[in-house]
Amino acid sequence: MLKLFFKIMDLDRRWIFLMVAVIVTIPLFIPSNPPIVPDRPVQELYNFIDALPEGTPIMICFDYSPDSLAELNPMGRALVRHAFSKNLRVIGLALAWPAASGLGLEIISSSAEEYGKIEGVDWAYFGYKIGYSQIVIGMGKNIAQTVQEDHKGLSLNNMEMFKEIKNYDDIGIVIDLAAGGSLGLFVTYVNTMYNRPVSTGVTAVMAADYYPYLQSGQIIGMLNGLKGAADYEKLVNRKGLATRGMASQNWAHIMIIILIVLGNISFLLTKKQQSKQ
């Protein structure tokens, strides 16, 4: 019996890969309604955006590449939908990765179509802007002068929207959807230097690092990984990719915990055998 157990423990890792694939796939075919209760940081961000007066612009910076879109795209979509449903205006841009340019545009333009919002009046998209910290610093002084043109090459000075939006002072909140260290830049400059509200949606891998900023109030709320996205989808009452993925996430975690327990049993048994010998 013990031999069989050890044999199982010594399985080729490709069997584990197969188990992961099966465990993640099967829940997608079983209709379920997993309970999703929004976290406190998600609720805080939702409440802040919800309380902004109609017409207030919010800025969303898409700082991720397709590597992390499974977690961050649903966040972006839920945030933009929330903003448009509250008649807030949305400004989008990408600073950290050129590849985020297309992702952010797709999210904002498709959501704008859903809510009948007009580009240049209700929303604007700058695309990828090289310069990173220079752009973040410059937008605090003058957005139009810093960014100059939108993703279509239209001058911001000729846009209806930017007649009354000069810098961060005219923006309700700046949200950084980040898969890297870009949030530090927003906290340092937008929040500390210009004293404007900042929030974030981050990949689960990085989320633990940003709790100090949450506790100190330097960021208002935070969306943490796929769960954060699913929580926001729940709050805006629009089930999306994140909610669809939570059942698979559930089963994958159960499997990993079982594997960790089995691994530890095997470790203890081996240790016991070794001490006997």
Binding site: F17, V24, S65, D67, L103, M255, I256
Partner: peptide, 20 residues
């Protein structure tokens, strides 16, 4: 997009194996 997204999704398999 599919190439980059899939490339990083491979990590799910390796982290599970590593956890075990």
């Amino acid at each position: 997009v599919p190439l980059q997204a899939t490339m990083f999704s491979l990590l799910a398999f390796y982290i599970t194996s590593a956890a075990f």
